[in-house]
Computed example of a mutant assay.
Amino acid sequence: MKLPFSFKSSVLIPMMLGWLILLIIPGILFVFDISLFPLLSLDSTAAETLFWITSSGTIPYGVATILLVLLLSYRRLERSRFFSLFFTISLSMCTILGLSHYLKPLFNEARPNAVWLEQHYLLNTDNFYSLSKAERKEQMMAAVNQIEHADTEITLAPLVKQHWQHEVDFSFPSGHTLLAITLTMVTSYYLLLAGNIWIPSLLFFWSISMGFSRMLLGMHWSQDVLASTLLGGIIGLVSLFAIHKTFPFIWSLSTKLVSQRRKANQ
């Protein structure tokens, strides 16, 4: 059975090109200081569609997304490559969770929607981010419920209102973008290696949509998405390299244990 131990330029080159495109989009917005919030009508069908896209990276739906990707990959990869993919995804997801947990309080960056609420005298960000998460949710709920009575240009669809009330932590980095980029990079490597193109293509457009959804819904600034795209790609590549180096030993050990167990049961 072939083991997935050699990096191939025929796979890495399209991966790197895709990553570059994903970096260029928020990079242009950042360089030209273009803010996508509040350009979109947040009580529209488009806003609700973006909510469902962004929810695909939100717990528990994010876990379901990873499991779906693994299921689709399982049907298209050899057993050794699938387990290598599983270990790589596990390593990269643990890394982004830890990194996001550490960086958010370190940078203390307010979300665009919180800044907008402050500009309309519905929230005080200094006080808001000093509260516990439960207290922030209560205060955000109160602020969101006052929007329709304030002199503002924004009306929130119920799903978007629910999202604002749920996402009350700091802005930098974008955990949703980290998840989307890392999952796309890692999964695309193995599937492109196996000759599958359509799933990596879907994941690529999902990653683009995720970044846009985070910015258009007022959850992140362009620099958050740009930095998370950069970090997500690096984490994906480092995770691939780490498993590339360790998986031969893991696979060899596991096959020996299985073989010994079968002999013992005979």
Rank of each mutant, 00 (worst) to 15 (best):
I208A: 14
S209F: 14
S209Q: 11
M210T: 03
M210I: 12
G211R: 04
G211K: 00
G211Q: 02
G211Y: 08
F212E: 06
F212Y: 09
S213W: 01
S213V: 03
S213M: 07
S213L: 11
R214Q: 02
R214I: 00
M215F: 00
M215P: 00
L216Y: 13
L216N: 05
L216V: 03
L216K: 11
L217E: 00
L217N: 00
L217C: 12
G218E: 04
G218V: 04
G218N: 10
G218A: 04
M219L: 13
H220N: 04
W221I: 08
W221N: 14
W221P: 01
S222I: 10
S222Y: 14
S222E: 14
Q223E: 07
Q223P: 13
Q223C: 15
D224W: 07
D224M: 11
V225I: 15
V225G: 02
V225W: 11
A227R: 14
A227N: 03
A227S: 10
A227C: 09
S228F: 13
T229G: 15
L230M: 14
L230D: 07
L231T: 13
L231F: 10
G232E: 03
G233M: 08
I235T: 09
G236M: 11
G236T: 07
G236A: 07
G236R: 10
L237W: 12
V238H: 14
V238D: 07
V238Y: 11
V238G: 07
V238E: 11
S239M: 04
S239P: 05
S239L: 01
S239T: 13
L240M: 09
F241V: 11
